[in-house]
Design a protein around this nucleic acid. Structure first.
Length: 342
DNA sequence: AACCCATTTCCTGGTT
DNA sequence: GAACCAGGAAATGGGT
């Protein structure tokens, strides 16, 4: 198995394969006023950073839910080292999972694979994932702005209004013993704070007309130059977080009942059929996540349609704004969601 | 550097 | 007519 080879390498070379940080100020936690998602993930890592000083592990700057397989292996190997555990007793073939899969594991499953270390892993994961309460603040902040600026009439039933019970629920939820998906919808989401130009003023001026006139180039708009990005996001990890695919973003909104309400809803949970209720709002949220101020439902839906071919989504004919998860999607079934919460 | 992947953007034409 | 759907074409940016 490739995964077995891979993990073996990781285990034996863990410390030599750690990323070296580009920013020695990682350990410092920014002031609340400028606290962004990137900062959060760093702050989270700090109490249990694998190393002191400028070096840090590949996984340490990201939410566990977003870890790639390699990062999971990194983390496991770190835990093995840390607890002086005998790695030879671990069934390496069962470590071939990404962060999302890892987070879905119940304690018993972890114990099954990792033996006594499983409990440690579970506890550590709990700590890591529950250290993101401010991620929720970000969502709320975002949606507060959202409710002010979205061109789509939102009505008053939106779940994200200021003072909505949602806020409290979510914050509390974060501290309950289902820590691994406290707000996975925001997973890896960009911060509204300092580093995100598109969010600095809330939702940016999105107007379809802007695109129609003045013929812009096709394709994705250029991002900030490396230099300016370095300035703003100097603490970001080298690799773009996984788990940031559109369908996962959609799924994560849906599997969180609080977030689901108002933005999207299940039409048939068993079948994986769902509907956009506030299509433009979801699109703008997606745009926020991707630091793309000009995202629209039109564009988002084009990306959704590409999923048909890959069978991540199935067509639902004749029903507007309705999609269905396909066989190549995962993590939305009730059992899976329940599993990840226990 | 070249390639691949997952979008993003733009577009035309069709449907609700 | 607006909003949405379908899908081609081309471009982008991140990862390998």
């Amino acid at each position: 198995m490739a995964a077995t080879c891979e993990i073996s390498n990781v285990f034996s070379n863990y410390f030599s394969t750690m990323y070296s940080s580009e920013d020695p100020t990682l350990a410092s936690v920014p002031a609340a006023a400028t606290f962004g998602a990137d900062d959060l993930v760093l702050a989270l890592g700090s109490p249990q950073m694998p190393l002191e000083g400028p070096e840090k592990a590949s996984w340490s700057g990201e939410q566990p839910q977003l870890w790639s397989k390699a990062q999971v292996l990194d983390w496991i190997s770190y835990q093995v080292e840390k607890h002086k555990y005998d790695a030879s007793t671990i069934d390496l073939s069962r470590c071939d999972m990404d962060g999302a899969a890892l987070c879905r594991c119940a304690p018993e499953e972890l114990r099954l694979v990792f033996g006594p270390l499983g409990d440690q892993l579970y506890a550590q994961l709990w700590d890591l994932t529950s250290s993101f309460p401010d991620e929720l603040s970000w969502i709320m902040e975002l949606l507060e702005k959202d409710s002010m600026t979205l061109q789509e009439p939102l009505g008053d039933q939106g779940p994200f209004d200021q003072g909505s019970p949602f806020a409290q629920e979510m914050l509390e939820d974060c501290r309950q013993p289902s820590p691994f998906y406290p707000g996975s919808f925001s997973a890896g989401a960009p911060s509204p704070g300092s580093s995100d130009v598109s969010t600095a003023d809330g939702f940016p001026d999105y107007k379809k007309g802007d695109l129609k006139h003045g013929k812009r180039k096709r394709g994705r708009p250029r991002k900030l130059s490396k230099e300016s990005r370095g300035c703003l996001e100097g603490t970001k990890s080298k690799h773009a977080p996984r788990g940031t695919h559109l369908w996962e973003f959609i799924r994560d909104i849906l599997i969180n009942p609080e977030l689901n309400e108002g933005l999207m809803k299940w039409e048939n949970r068993q079948e994986g059929v769902f509907k956009f209720l506030r299509s433009e709002a979801v699109a703008q949220l997606w745009g926020q996540k991707k630091k793309n101020s000009s995202m629209t439902y039109e564009k988002l839906s084009r990306a959704m349609r590409y999923y048909y071919k890959r069978e991540i989504l199935e067509r639902v004919d004749g029903r507007r704004l309705v999609y269905k998860f396909g066989k190549n999607s995962s993590g939305w079934q009730e059992e899976e969601v329940v599993g990840r919460r226990n």
